[in-house]
């Protein structure tokens, strides 16, 4: 087949996209490895090699640790709450445990279509202590002494988690729904004949057969949690008192507000190494434990 062996033609087709990709993705990422070892401030390309100096600085930076802690906090909480809710919804709509399943499938996905910016601004309004939805709702039940939700560290963090969950559940629900719909109906029929209830068929059919999808969504949740930026930047800008500062907002602050480009990239590199190794670790653990069928 001489047609398909025409390497020269093929290269002409691939080259434009590949050049784009190399210029705007590969080059910056490759440079990032180098930049994390230099002291680089201001707008010129003057850099000063500091070896592991940036890393040492980072280890001694309490704000780095605080943002790391917050990032882990958001990732762990959303990483537990989102899949639990999404799975519950997905099972209920696919196993016909709820009326109006189609309508719920459509509406629960709405937040995933909206810009994170719009979601953040919307909830920033909705959590306004004076005219926001939440405060007004609670006032209906006679609560009067309500906090400023985004102004107090504890509430602000809870709010970020809640908004992230609100923004994400629909997407994961759609993924689980499609995975559950791929499970042969016979398996459930067999369960029924054996007298198993809805819970048992979930426990022994749905859950084991979702392991592939769990693996994929686990990595998504990890990347999403560690990349938390938009919602925090807009709703609280890392405050109050850095209670909601994440690694991503801290990187942005260092680079584009304080001009510490080298240091920011060092933190970014750390962020990348953490997510990458956690993703690999979770894939490895899940591969080891995965069910064959």
């Amino acid at each position: 087949m001489s047609l398909q062996n025409n390497g020269r033609v093929a290269l002409l087709f691939v080259l434009p996209a590949f050049l784009f990709y190399v210029t705007f993705l590969v080059v910056p990422y490759a440079l990032a490895f180098g930049v994390s070892f230099v002291k680089w401030r201001g707008v010129t390309l003057n850099m000063e090699y500091t070896g592991l100096g940036n890393f040492a600085k980072m280890i001694g930076d309490p704000f780095f640790w605080k943002s790391l802690y917050n990032t882990v906090f958001f990732t762990v909480l959303t990483g537990i709450i989102v899949p639990c809710m999404a799975l519950y919804f997905a099972v209920a709509v696919t196993r016909k445990l709820v009326a109006g399943a189609r309508l719920f499938r459509i509406t629960f996905f709405f937040p995933n279509l909206i810009s994170q910016v719009a979601i953040a601004v919307l909830w920033w309004f909705a959590l306004n202590p004076e005219f926001g939805i939440l405060s007004n709702f609670l006032r209906l039940f006679g609560f009067t002494d309500l906090p400023s939700w985004l102004g107090e560290p504890g509430w602000a963090r809870a709010a970020i988690v809640a908004v992230k969950v609100w923004a994400a559940v629909g997407f994961y629900m759609v993924l689980y729904v499609s995975a559950i719909e791929g499970i042969p109906e016979d398996y459930y029929d067999a369960c029924k004949i054996d007298g198993a209830g809805e819970w048992q068929s979930f426990r022994h059919v749905t859950l084991p057969l979702l392991s592939e999808m769990m693996k994929v969504t686990g990595v998504f949740l990890l990347l999403n949690g560690f990349g938390t930026f938009d919602v925090v930047r807009i709703m609280t800008d890392g405050g109050p008192d850095r209670a909601t500062e994440t690694l991503a907002t801290y990187i942005y602050e260092n680079a584009f507000e304080l001009g510490k480009f080298g240091y920011a990239t060092t933190i970014a590199m750390t962020l990348f190494l953490i997510t990458f190794s956690l993703a690999m670790l979770s894939l490895w653990i899940q591969r080891r434990d995965s069910v064959e069928y």
């Binding site: 910056p28 390309l45 990187i251 970014a268 990348f272």
Partner: peptide, 16 residues
């Protein structure tokens, strides 16, 4: 390219 978080390349990208 699907694996790399945007924040890692952000500073070099800006200067590029």
């Amino acid at each position: 390219g699907l694996m790399f978080p945007i924040f890692l390349g952000l500073v070099p990208l800006f200067f590029l």
